[in-house]
Structures are given as C-alpha cells and as structure tokens.
Simulated scan of single mutants.
Amino acid sequence: MYLFVRLSALCIALAFLNGCGRQDAPPLDQQLYVWQRQWTPAHEAALKDSRADFSTLRVLALQAFPQAGWSRARIDPALLKADGRPLIAVIRLDGQLKALNQDDVITQITQVISDWQAQGLTLAGVEIDHDAGNARLPAYREFLVHLRAALPASVALSITALPAWLDSSELPALLSTVDSSVLQVHAVSDPHRGLFDPDMARQWAKSWSRVTPKPFYLALPAYGVALLPSTSGAPIVESEVRIERGGERRELLADPQQLSQLGAQLRADAPPHLAGLIWFRLPLANDRRAWSLTTLRAVARGDALDSRLVLNLSAQQGLYDIGIRNEGNLDSAWPERLTLAVQGCEGADALAGYALQQTPDLLTFTRLRDGRIAAGEQRAIGWARCAKIDQGESHVHP
C-alpha cells in the first residue's frame, strides 16, 4: 500500500513534466488535394494563402476513363515550382475501367513524371486513385508491384483506399506494396445519405489502423455537391462543373462543425499509424461548392468556428447600398431576413435572392432561396434612397 501511494504521488508530480500515461501524439499533418483539371489565375492566390497551414500538395495529374481514354490536368508548373511544398502527383484510374493495361498505364505515369521533372518539378510521390472492387484487388496488387518497380526509388508510392476494402482478406497484401495509403471517408456511401458520416469515419480509421503497419492518412471533405434526379433512380452528382439538366437540385455540403469536431477527436486520440489529414479540395475564389479557404484553415488548425453576419451600408448622396458581411471564420447561409429602420425613403429594391417589403419606417428583405456567404466576404442585398437608415436599430436575422 505504501509503495502504491509513493508511486501515485510520483506519477502526479511527473505529470506536470512528461505525463504519466501516454505521451501527447505529434500534431496531425495537414495536406491538400489540388483537383482542378484546368488551372486558372485564381490558383496563385489560393496556393499562397494555403502555404502556412498545409504541408503538402497532392495534385491531380492524369486521369483515365472508359471510352474517353487519357486526360492530363493542365497544371501551372511555374506556380508549383515557386510554391516549393512537397508535391505528390495523383493518377486517377476510373473504377469503371474493365481492366488495367499494366504496360500502358505505367508508360503514361512514367511519362507524366518525366514531363513534370523536365519542367523543374521535384516529385515526392505518386498516388494512385483507383476505386477497384474487392474482387479485383489481387489484380490491382499485381499492378502496384510492377508500378513500384518502374518508379524512381526517390518517389514514394501511395494509393487512395476505400472503406469497403476492409471486408477483403486481400487488403494486407495490397497495402504491403505501397509506402502509405489514403483512406477516403467521404462520398463512399449512397449519396442520399449525405457526403460524410463522422462516426463511420472514426470507426473506419480505427479498423484501418489495425490492418496496416504503415502510415496512413484520412481524406476528408471540404466541399459540396448537388444531386439531380434521373430516370434510372440513381441520382446524378454535380460537383465543380455545372450539368445542363433540368429538375430540382438537392445540395449536400460537408459540415465544417462536424469536421472540426472529428479533427479534435483525432488529435486527442489518434489511431495508430494515422499520419495526417488530406483535405479535398484546395478552394479557389470562384469555387461555389467548396468551403472558403478561411473556413478550411480554421478547421485544420482546430480554431473555434464562428460566423458573424453584420449589416454593411455604404451611402452616397442619400443612396444606400445594402449588404451583409461575414466577419467570422465560418462560411454562413444567407440570412433569412434583414430589417432596416428608415426615414424618408423615396425608393428601394432587393437584388436577386431576396424580396423587399416596405413600410414608411421599415424595410424588410426576406430570403427567397438558399445561398452561402464565405467567411470574410460580403454580399449585396439591395438598395434604398432614404433620408436616413438607422444602423443601430437595424438587424440581421440568421
């Protein structure tokens, strides 16, 4: 008993220095997918503003589709070279491909590596993104063995992996062929059930850690999609590029609060071998279905999230431009309603997305459809020509 008390006291004393139980795990690495097929001038600012918070760029380089064949992403090598972060080329091999022609695929991949190197880019790794069904995992493993032999020794090999592979006895052998794996935990279930389930993501991560002795990452969503109806019953998924099709769109968006909570849980109790998180995708300024970079950085850092919508008025000779500004770090839905206390208004109107109701002393702008205002951004709501708008008595109703 005396020995137990002494050991307990010693443990409490040492806790202030080193901790008596499990040591604090190192912070989880934060990386980014750059998934745009056609790079634009907006990439320059997005790369610059993401540099402080995300260590590595995983860049879509090459895709293979049934019938359509091979397609290269049109990257900006000068921007990537100036950026200087470790660079991983991602090769997307569509899961609907009937088979992988090993020689052709390896030739295409090694040519991309050679071309990128000729443009002054140094590759840290190659990631293969192939949604193979469980029955095809043995053939996929054989392909990876041949690919590994064809890659330079300095280029690490990783794969994007699916939770469904946990049901296959072939998984350990498959993972033995690569240096690391990226477990995708978004957009892996029936779209009607949503993009992401944080509880399932944690469960899959724990199960994955028991299968692989090598580092693995979680691929997490920072984007949204729309589901469009189809005659077959299975929804059509619209992502970055608009699909010219009628019918009501059901918008799905990954919830930053959910992902922030998951990040905190993983930092506090990371499964063995979990090396970091990879966010899909680098948001550009005009990316209407991605979180803003401000929100993505806040979630990755573990910052408290807050959207603060404030009324934004600018006046010139009695003409007021009326808008809202998001002064928080969390993207927000458009406010449901704005009420403005006014005097002596000669005219007013709402802009697209809102309707106006007017009385002699009150303007009420009511939302007609859904929309988002990014953290740090502002949006025009309407205008009014009035003798006075009392901002202190005007309100934004979320």
Results as ranks from 00 to 15, higher is better:
M1W: 13
L3A: 15
L7V: 09
Q30D: 05
Q38H: 10
A42E: 08
A46I: 05
I75R: 02
A78L: 15
D83M: 12
A89S: 08
D94R: 04
L97K: 02
D103P: 02
D104M: 06
D104P: 04
T107G: 13
T110D: 07
T110K: 12
I113Y: 06
A118S: 14
L121V: 07
H130R: 02
D131A: 10
N134C: 09
Y140D: 02
E142G: 11
F143A: 02
L144W: 02
P152C: 13
A153T: 08
L157M: 08
L157N: 03
L162R: 02
S168K: 03
L174M: 03
V182Y: 01
P191G: 07
H192F: 14
D199H: 12
A201D: 00
V211M: 00
F216I: 02
L218D: 02
P221V: 06
Y223G: 06
T231N: 13
G246Y: 08
E248N: 08
S260H: 12
S260E: 10
A264D: 04
A264R: 12
A268C: 10
P271M: 06
L274A: 04
A275I: 01
I278H: 03
R297F: 08
A298Q: 07
A300K: 04
A300N: 06
R301L: 12
G302F: 12
A304Y: 07
S307N: 15
L309T: 03
L309G: 05
N312L: 13
Q317W: 07
G318F: 05
L319E: 14
D321C: 06
N329K: 08
P335Q: 03
L338E: 01
V342R: 02
G344S: 07
E346Q: 09
Y354K: 02
Q357V: 07
T366S: 13
T366R: 07
T366Q: 09
R367C: 04
A375E: 08
G382R: 04
W383H: 08
A384V: 04
G392P: 01
E393G: 07
H397W: 07
